Simulated scan of single mutants.
Amino acid sequence: MTRHAEPPASRTINERLSAVRGEQAGLRRVAFLIGQLELGGAEKQLSLLARELRLRSIEVHVLLLSKGGPHEQTLREAGIGVHHLGFGRKPSGLPALRRNLVAFARLVVLLRGLRLDVLHAFLYESYMIGAVAARLARVPIVVAGRRGLRNRPDRPGWGSTLERAVNRVTDHVIANAAAVAEDARTVEHLPAHKLSVIYNGLPETAFDPAEPENIDTPLPVILCVANLLKIKGHRFLIDAAATLARQGNPCTIILVGDGPEYAPLQTQATTLGLDVRFLGSRTDTAGLLARADIVVLPSLSEGLSNAVMEAMAAGRPTIATSVGGTPELLEDRGLLVPPADPAALAEAITHLLTHPQHATTLATAARAWARKNLDATAMTIQHINLYHQLLETRCVE
């Protein structure tokens, strides 16, 4: 059975930290491997976990396949080593192959020099590269992360064969939701004993009250925080907004994020005559959350959404599509709708706007659940305990 450690919510932070001191014996150095440090959910969680480990006197390094990003300076200020490896983003041709071979050799040498206890690779390209490099460098424990649904049972045979080979040399896989773990078992045929579920975490600041940001509109404000990608389903939110406008319930839609769908979405909103505001990438969303009447995430696929978690912590009524780990977050604490269904989304928005007491009840329950189950300290302890158990097992072997 997949391991799913429950957060020790009943224990004080001091008690938890005392427990950690006993558990981390033998755990000295951990490195995280990821492609880059842009404003994505995985990058945010990596940064949070790395800083939490560093606070517990564990030496932490972050290894970047291709480039840095907004989280890099925060990590360096926390005393965490950040290393650029120089892999190409979209390699093609002989020069790119040479560059990536040099970068791979650089990775192996770096792993040997760091004398790690654990290498934790966060996303697909990272663990496909990192597991092999770690074994060549004789890193004792290799952990891979699964942070979204693969849903690709029809992938090419060579790809599945390669992934199974990498999984065999990986000691353990951490999924950030039960749905993600089930997907890994189904699609990748990972054995249950190599899988654990550890939910994403939220820093205490996510629960702090914030001053609502000034948004000049007399209409209800619907907020969506997500990179502008097709998989995030923004077009269905805009279609839902058009339905609401036709029904005499216009809203102001605030989209926070950037990406290749910006132009198509802007054209769609203009054509429909809607008040849709594109704010670009933002790290300071607390004021927007405080101002929003409803938070919506219309994704077609998700792992465990940071945007939904942050809306829950802020105590905002939330509507999201019933995909991936989202039902684990919002079951009985928000409204779930089918993906790619603007009519259902419009109906859910209308319900919360016309039933404010129900909206408040859901938001209050969501905030309480998030505080109990999405605590950054609990998430960190679960990682430390797992790393420690894996190291103990390796020593016994």
Rank of each mutant, 00 (worst) to 15 (best):
P338E: 15
G303V: 00
A19H: 04
P8W: 03
H83K: 04
S281V: 14
V295T: 03
I129T: 08
E23V: 13
S281Y: 10
G40M: 01
L190I: 12
Y262C: 14
T361Q: 11
Q357S: 12
R246I: 06
R115H: 02
Q357C: 09
L119Y: 12
N306A: 15
E347G: 07
P342F: 08
N373S: 06
A78T: 05
I222A: 03
D332P: 03
L335R: 02
V173N: 01
L149C: 01
D154A: 15
G325E: 07
A184R: 02
H83T: 05
A348L: 15
A240E: 15
A192E: 13
E310F: 11
Q36P: 05
M379P: 07
H189P: 06
P209Y: 07
G79S: 00
E182S: 14
A19M: 01
L75I: 04
P220R: 01
L362N: 00
N306I: 14
D208E: 15
L55I: 08
Y124A: 05
A96K: 11
P260W: 04
L110K: 12
G68R: 08
V143M: 05
D239Y: 10
A378N: 11
P7I: 04
G41L: 11
T243Y: 14
T267G: 14
G130T: 11
K194Y: 03
T380D: 01
A245R: 08
P8T: 12
I13Y: 00
L374H: 04
A363P: 12
G26F: 06
A370K: 06
N385K: 11
T205I: 07
R146E: 09
T360S: 13
G148I: 06
Q73D: 12
A192T: 09
S301R: 10
L374Q: 02
T267C: 14
T270D: 10
R29L: 00
L111D: 05
T361G: 12
Q357A: 15
Q389N: 03
A365E: 01
V225R: 09
L297T: 03
R146C: 05
R282V: 00
L97N: 03
E211Q: 10
I349M: 10
V20T: 05
V139G: 06
A121M: 12
P220A: 02
D171I: 09
